[in-house]
């Protein structure tokens, strides 16, 4: 007994080191296996406040680009509006579309794209009815999915996160696959599990498939840059050039599917 106590006393700093190492490695493993870290996330008042303060300064540097983006989006929306007026038999009923999905705008106060698992922080939280697992998009396409929230801030699991998987499809046909990121370039993401018989050409548009209750169908993702068969020779792996410049983001919209609880209840009752 005496010897055990002596051993602990003699090596107390090493044992302390081991203890802390276990804690930190545990947190690291948790963050790699499960993309919503329970304790270590920047959706809290201190970190959110600091980022908000920093952003209030740095956002001035991007005012011109943001204006250009808004201008572009206005033009795009106006052209859609005009087209819809001309041919009223378009596929979507705009009244049901707007009631099914609720859009909230938010501002990104922290962006990151150089890590393997990237998270963004936005300045809207649960008091603006932001909840976990809502989709986040910008004017040009998808950004990610809401992770943790607190009353004022929320983190977004970026599409540039190796643990994130989103369902995507080709715009011209309905063949769908899984969008994920290999951690290399912030300009490209990968679309896997596309059937071999799909007719792919460079420049094809990839959109979200609407197969989950997070994103509605038809949110822009990117365009096909290259493709090859995977190891099983049955599916294509497609390199997708993102429409969004993930390195330069400021304003985003959060999509809430109002039927989400209904869909989830249905799925659970089936189990």
């Amino acid at each position: 007994m005496q010897q055990i106590v002596n051993f602990i006393l003699r090596n107390k700093s090493f044992l302390f080191f081991l203890l802390l190492l276990c804690v930190s490695v545990g947190l690291t493993i948790q963050s790699h296996s499960y993309h919503k870290s329970k304790f270590i996330n920047s959706a809290n008042n201190v970190t959110g406040g600091v980022y908000n303060l920093g952003n209030s300064v740095s956002s001035y540097f991007h005012l011109k680009e943001e204006n250009d983006k808004l201008h572009e989006e206005n033009t795009r929306l106006r052209s859609i509006l005009n087209n819809q007026m001309e041919k009223s038999e378009t596929f979507i009923d705009s009244t049901s579309y707007t009631t099914k999905y609720k859009f909230t705008t938010a501002k990104i106060i922290k962006n990151s794209y150089s890590l393997q698992n990237n998270y963004l922080t936005i300045n809207k939280g649960s008091r603006d009815s932001i909840k976990q697992d809502l989709g986040v998009i910008s004017s040009k396409g998808i950004i990610g999915i809401i992770g943790n929230t607190n009353s004022k801030y929320a983190t977004v699991v970026s599409i540039l996160n190796t643990t994130n998987k989103i369902s995507g499809q080709l715009k011209k046909t309905n063949q769908f696959g899984t969008l994920s990121w290999n951690g290399k370039s912030p300009r490209y993401i990968q679309l896997s599990d596309i059937q071999k018989n799909a007719k792919l050409t460079k420049g094809d548009t990839i959109i979200t498939s609407g197969r989950s209750s997070i994103f509605p169908k038809g949110i822009l993702v990117g365009q096909v840059e290259g493709f090859k068969l995977d190891a099983t020779k049955n599916y294509y792996e497609v390199e997708v050039l993102l429409f969004n410049d993930m390195t330069n983001l400021e304003h985003v919209s959060i999509i809430e599917n109002k039927d989400k609880t209904l869909i989830n209840n249905l799925l659970q009752s089936n189990e």
């Binding site: 190492l21 930190s24 270590i40």
Partner: peptide, 18 residues
């Protein structure tokens, strides 16, 4: 750990600093 909380990086910085 504080850096990790800011950067949403799990425990990477804590491990390295330790």
């Amino acid at each position: 750990l504080i850096i990790d909380i800011f950067m949403d990086s799990g425990g990477i910085n804590a491990t390295a600093a330790l």
